[in-house]
Structures are given as structure tokens and as C-alpha cells.
Design a protein around this nucleic acid. Sequence first.
DNA 1: CTGGGGAAGGGGCCC
DNA 2: AGGGCCCCTTCCCCA
Length: 539
Amino acid sequence: MANCMVFHNQIASIMEVLANSAVAEICKLVDDDYAVFRLEMTQSQKDNRGLRRKLQLLELKVARERAERTLRQHVVASRPNSVKILDRYRGMARGEGHLTGGHRSFVKPAGHNTWRDDQPITVDEGSGTSTQNIIMIEPADAEAADPGVKQERSEGEEDPRHSRDNPTRAAGDPPVATEDTAPAPLRSQRSITEVSGMPNTALKSETDTETLTVTHRLLHTESDHRSDPERQGLGRLGCPPAPGSEYLPVFHQSHRMVHTRGDGYGDELNIGGDDPSCSYATEMDPGNMPLGLEIQTDLSRGDWNRYSSSVHSEGCLDKKGEVIVVDEVTVKVEGDVPPTWNAESPLVEGHSQGRDFLDYRGSLETNLNIATPSSLHAFRDLDPVSASMGPSDSHGSVRFDQVFNSNDRAKALAPGGGATSGNVKEKRFLCMFCNKGFSCPQKVEIHQRVHTGVKCFSCTQCQMRFVQAGDLKRHQRVHTGEKPYSCPQCEKRFSRQDHLKMHMKVHTGERPFACTHCGKRFSERRCLRIHQQKNHSTL
DNA sequence: CTGGGGAAGGGGCCC
DNA sequence: AGGGCCCCTTCCCCA
């Protein structure tokens, strides 16, 4: 019996040893295979990256050739050596171009609050049917030729639409018939030629070139110049101390828009950056992406993605405020500058202190396609928002005529108030969409929601969403019925003070808007406009 | 009935 | 956050 037990134990121990050795062998085999597999994977990925780079280079080359060919066809003959800047967005941004169809596409270069007399402007007003207006701004080289002229036009050059900022009004003059103001005169001779009906390919090519270049620069500098407000000790709403004196374009972008490629590289991304407090979420369907976005995402297949998590932030509720701060090292212009590179764009001139500054609009212009009203709508429709939210309604579209307050931009970039001034509230952080300056990146983020269509604040009682918390709060009075403002002259109550103010005109008989044609006065600008359109239509 | 204008209500956005 | 201005739409009244 004892022998039997001993034998059994020996058998058991042998079995255990055998099992252990088998497991060890299996593990070894798995490890070896896994190592080989990983090696192969790495090699494949390396090959893929190499092929992608080649592809991008080829695309770049083709795009550049195409752009050059197109430029040659449309170049303005008067300045053969000038740098051409294709700027589609400016025209669209002001509600011009094809957005308003037939409106003049007279634009002022972004970030450029001055117009020079030596630059002819050619405005094609008769091409309202164009679906693609391209503003070619030239030339940068003329700036150096006559640097003093722009000082003469540093103010009072704003779009008459923005009468709020009109100095004449500020001086106390009633805003009489502001709608009657003639369309913006050709304020200078800046040579802006709108090329109507230019094929998209031309613009796409330009954008392609710029995007690639900008992306490469970001990649090269990201690790060194990444800005992390939290790491810098910034609070949620804190504004950073001014680390330098340059204007800093703030690069804010929803990373989800870049991460939806689904090509495997997205796995490397940190997608945990969503702000949980924000009910907003953006999903871009690659199939529905605007053309320009595809360009960006093409780049994202490569090295771009691995950096994107640090580049992007949702920015909802101002929690993160991550920005890319691009300093002068980042934006050094090298010799091989694409024709559209804004190395000498007006933006540079706006704060020239011998520093180089690149306009990232070219890169983001790919995403600017999102910001067109139609695509914004699509953008919203793609937005699942919160679980309580249904499909987006028709509200909330971005009105570009309001968005682009050129006077603000002028103030932001004015020599006295810009980077060269000693103002405490330097507006060093630029919106990359419209170049408007802000004093801290958080403000830029909030502002840029205007362009991106990001609306973080949703109403719990309806499907409305808002860019700003205050807007939501104000909106909720619609549901609550709260009307804290009462008219002292009558029983009427209002939910908003400005509505009460407007109402008070009923009692005061104030009619500040007068028609310059017939003298009829109106209490509202809208009424005057309608009146003039119907009775004195010159539009 | 229709069009013009007044008034109110609401959203967008900037300061 | 609140104030303020812009714009728009809608409703109503009246000639």
C-alpha cells in the first residue's frame, strides 16, 4: 500500500514537471511567434509610413504643379513677381462670395487692419453665380516698397456693416441710415482679384500644399512648443502670462475629426481627452467630410495623428484650453515656400517686428469647409450631442457677417494695441480662422467655436445648443417664462434688458434710423433696410 | 386681401 | 456673468 502511494506521488510529480515544461515550451513558442509577429508588424508599419510619405510627396508635387498652372492662368499681369495668396475663406466669411451669391466679394486681408493706396483692388461684382470665389491677394513684396502708406489707413476702414464700431457713431451721431451707406468703396489699391468660377482644384491644390507644409512644421516643433495651460499652472479660466511678444495663432480642433480614419493609426491616439462635462461630441463621417477635411485627414494617416491628441482639445466648458503656441522658431519660413505660403501675408505686416509669422489658415482652411453654413449644418447633424439630444435643428447656424468683425481684428492687430504695445491685455492669441486677437487662449477657444460650430451648452428642455453658457442661461428664460425686466411706462415685461430697451422706443418715439432717400425714420435698422430695399432698391 | 411697418421674441456674438 | 448690440423671424395692425 505504501509503495502504491509512493508510486502515485511520483507519477503526480512527473506529471507536474511535464505539464510545467509543456507550458514553458508553449509560452516560449508564443513569445517567439509574437516577437516575430511584432517585428513583422513594425516593419509593415514602417513600410506603410514610407509609402504614405511618398504618396504625400507625389500628391504635393501634383498639387503644386496644378496650382502653379492655374495661377499662371489667372495671375494678375500687373505684378508678375508678387506672392499670391489664395484666400477663399475671407470672402465667404463676410457673407460674401457664393454665400450670398452676387454680393461683392470685397475682402480685407485678415489680420491686416490697413489698406494701402498703392494696391489696386479689382472686384468682380457680377459673378454671383460663382460657386467658388477665390481671393488672390497680392502682393506682399509691394509692402516693402511702400511701407509707410499703410499707416495712413489704420482706422476708419471698417465694413460699414459694423456700425457699432463706427467712430462716427461713437462720436454721438445717430446711426442715420446706416444701411444706406454705399457698399464699401474700393478703399485702396491693394490688388485683390477675385477669380470667380475658378475650379476647386486650384484651391484644393493650394490648400494641399499649405497644409502639408504646416503640418510638417507642427510636427517638427510640437514636442518643443506644445502649450499646456494646465502644466503652466493655468486655472480653468486663467489667462496665461504673456510668455513672449508674438501673436500666437491658436490651433484648436476637434480631435475626433481627425481620428475617424479607422486605419489603425487612430489606436495610437489618446481619445480620452473628451471633456466629460461637455455634452457635446463631434463625429465626423469620413464619407461626408468636406473635401478639405479629407486633405487634413490624409495627413493624419501619417505622423500627424500621433501628435494630434496634444494638438487638439475639445475645449468645452473651457476646461482644457490646450493650444499650440507657435513661436518664431516654429514659423520660420524656409526657402522652398509654396506660392500660397503666407510668409509675407498681411498678418505678418500687422505686427512686424522683424519676426516671422505664419498664417495657419492655410492648414485649417481644410477644416474651414466645415464652417460654411451648409457644412456647418451637416456638421451639426453629425453631432450626436448628448443622449438626450435629438437631431440638430435648424437653429444656431453661424452667421458669418457677424462673425467677422473686421474692426475687432483691426483693434487686435493695430500697431498700438497689438504685439508691439505695452498693453497688459495684449491680444497675442490669434484665432486661426479670422486672425482676431485675444488676450488668452481660453478666449480664443470660445471664439473659435464660432467657426467650428461647436456648441457645448445644451438646453435640457429642448434641442437648442449654445456656444456660450450665458446664451443658454438666457435661452432658458424661454422655458421658465421669467421676465425680470418691466417697462416703467406700461405693464409689459420682458425677459431681456435689450428687449426692454427696444420696447422703450415705443414710448419715447425714438426713431434713430432715417432713410437718406425719403427721410422716413424707423425705430429699427431692419425696418430701414427693408424699406430701402423695397422703395429705393439699389441693391 | 395684401403689403408696409411696428413690436416682440429669440439666437449669435463681443466686451 | 452680465450687458449690449447685432440680426432674424414671426405676429399683428392698419392703410
